[in-house]
């Protein structure tokens, strides 16, 4: 069929529309695309109520939806190359210039998906949110900690037991004590109202985190070049915007949480100083476990440009 100039695209999101990671990126991306296309290309939103967060990759791959707004750890059972980006320094321009994004894009295209954008939610990524303060070494001794697979090696190294669960279930699990804590980004705890049920945020922060916007490859190929370029441009711009925007949001959120009942508890420096290493090595370990050589090549590429350990 002839390439389409105008398109109504359907986007599936792993986050609800009012959750900060979507709220601060998704609508802005949609708006940019609409503006650049003079209103010819529109994007509609479908949330995790229609398809559970961890089950979203396949329906987009199958073409039920055109776009996917997600964190790559949510489809780590299918491929882990995407989640490896969380071990690579946040520098949106450099990531593209040295070919990191291209490499990941190529990998996903072999799986029927096109990587449109990989915006980071800030320069720094994560911390642990806990029910009880840290006491002693190892800091997570005997605790069950919610985390996607990316965190598992690190949680284990800190003496804890990792448990994976979708965002929507964490609040209840923390409340009930099904988990003793959760590894999470530096934004989002406020939206998830964790301050209502737990008291501690642990220092130091570590790693970097981002979301990704993918497109079904057939839907992508059906677009004309102009529309394709519009999507890619919007994707690139949102990557640059997001970093500084989220750095500010992170600072605001930390202040807000501190004012609303949460306090900082710190890992022993002997462990804290190791956080970046533990995190990056853990992520690469997980990536290589599922995606083998494809992940190792990405690591070499990033290492050769000094962007990971």
């Amino acid at each position: 069929p002839a390439p389409v100039e105008a398109a109504e695209l359907r986007m599936l999101s792993g986050f609800s529309p009012n959750f900060v990671w979507y709220r601060e990126i998704g609508p802005r991306f949609i708006e940019m695309v609409q503006e650049k296309s003079g209103g010819d290309t529109t994007i509609s939103f479908t949330g995790p109520d229609a398809v559970p967060t961890f089950e979203q990759f396949q329906p987009v791959q199958a073409g039920v939806f055109d776009l996917l707004f997600t964190h790559p750890a949510y489809h780590s059972g299918t491929t882990s190359v995407g989640l490896a980006i969380d071990a690579i320094d946040v520098d949106p321009v450099k990531r593209r210039d040295v070919g990191i994004i291209d490499y990941i894009d190529q990998h996903y295209m072999q799986r029927g998906m096109k990587l449109i954008s990989a915006p980071s939610t800030g320069t720094k990524g994560f911390r642990y949110y806990l029910r009880e303060p840290i006491d002693g070494v190892p800091g997570l001794n005997g605790r069950i900690i919610r985390g996607t697979v990316s965190y598992h090696p690190m949680i284990k190294a800190l003496g804890g037991s990792p448990l994976n669960m979708p965002v929507s279930e964490i609040y209840t699990a923390l409340q009930r004590g099904t988990v003793d804590g959760a590894a999470w980004g530096l934004t989002g705890a406020k939206d998830l109202k964790w301050n209502e049920i737990i008291k501690y945020m642990a220092d130091p922060v570590f790693g970097q985190v981002g979301v990704m916007i993918f497109m079904n490859l057939d839907s992508w190929n059906a677009l004309d070049e102009k529309t394709q370029n519009i999507l890619l441009e919007a994707g690139r711009e949102i990557e640059v915007e997001a970093q500084s925007h989220f750095d500010k949001l992170q600072a605001d959120e930390f202040e807000w949480l501190s004012a609303n009942g949460m306090e900082v508890t710190s890992f022993d420096p002997s462990e804290g100083n190791e956080f970046e290493r533990l995190w990056a090595e853990g992520v690469w370990e997980v990536a290589a476990e599922v995606s083998g050589d494809d992940a190792r090549k990405l690591r070499e590429l990033a290492k050769s440009h000094g962007m990971t350990r």
Binding site: S76, T78, V149, H152, L163, N164
Partner: peptide
């Protein structure tokens, strides 16, 4: 065919 693993702590073929 696509060797998809579970998202659980101990990943096994789904």
């Amino acid at each position: 065919d696509s060797n998809i693993l579970t998202l659980t702590t101990i990943a096994v073929p789904k």
